[in-house]
Nucleic acid binder design. Structure first.
Lengths: 150, 150
DNA sequence: TTAAACAGTACTGAATTGGTCCCATTTTAC
DNA sequence: GTAAAATGGGACCAATTCAGTACTGTTTAA
């Protein structure tokens, strides 16, 4: 089906919320669950992942909570999705130690490397800032020809 | 994890094989299973899907088999993957009749539309011809900047 | 000392995917 | 005209992955 997972989708929603609340000096998992309607255990799980990958900073203790590790304009979709789903690797041979017989002689692999990079790039140009302020997407050209308007 | 499914991967392998055998006037599921080492029932299933979507033509009967519906240079990865996995829709709101509350006011949706298109485009420029002859990928630029070399 | 927050890990149910099987239909060779 | 070899179209099961939950520990401040 080739879908971004639900958890990645949730993560984006949560981070938008955190970005908005940033002036109030951070947010807690409990607050985020309340405002986003995502179940608290799920929110907790996601915030841990995002912290693990350096997207969020956390503060423990009584007045603890989470904050963005970087500015909204420096936090992009590629990083968020990778934090939740692991490295972007559209095919097995893009990530694992492969028992793929061919390896160097493979005609298909270079194309996947390329597609993978193009995809990751498309994700990485969209930042939290774009999502919270409603900035429109940048046009993409491929071989000099504009291919993705709208 | 965000992976192309194994079946899509198999489908690409099968089609490359069919493209190669094209001079011999088509191939059968049995032959393809033998040359690719993919289990016959799986091969059969995939060929059906590819035919269903117009990627392959089939001939029934004693001397039947499969042929490409279009030339190798006109059969691309986007079409193949869509035949196996359904329309490319990275998020739910890209495909289904959505019970998504916001719909028109959503800040995120336009970005997904764009990412989706960029991804599909990256897939669609790679044809069976490229895969069988070893043609190298076309560079991609984004906002005028080259982003995916190699 | 207690309460509210994060930290870490393990587990379970549901959904998707991968793979198989069965029987019907079509066509050709004998 | 019959048998064999091919596709056509379902249904089905097992295995993996994903989503969600639970539990127990640690940190910090009131």
């Amino acid at each position: 089906m080739l879908r971004i997972s639900k958890l990645s989708d949730y993560a984006i929603v949560l981070l938008c919320e955190i970005a908005k609340a940033e002036r109030g000096e951070g947010t807690t998992a409990r607050q985020l669950a309340a405002t986003t309607q995502i179940a608290l255990p799920t929110v907790v799980k996601l915030l841990k992942m995002l912290k693990e990958d350096g997207v969020l900073l956390s503060m423990q203790g009584r007045n603890g909570g989470y904050r963005l590790a970087r500015r909204p304009s420096e936090t992009n979709l590629a990083v968020i999705i990778e934090a939740v789903e692991g490295p972007i690797a559209l095919t097995e041979c893009m990530s694992e130690e492969l028992d793929c017989q061919i390896h160097s002689k493979c005609n298909t692999r270079p194309h996947w490397v390329h597609i993978n990079a193009a995809f990751r790039q498309a994700l990485s140009v969209v930042t939290l800032n774009d999502l919270t302020t409603g900035t429109m997407p940048v046009p993409v050209t491929l071989g000099g020809v504009r291919v993705a308007a709208l």
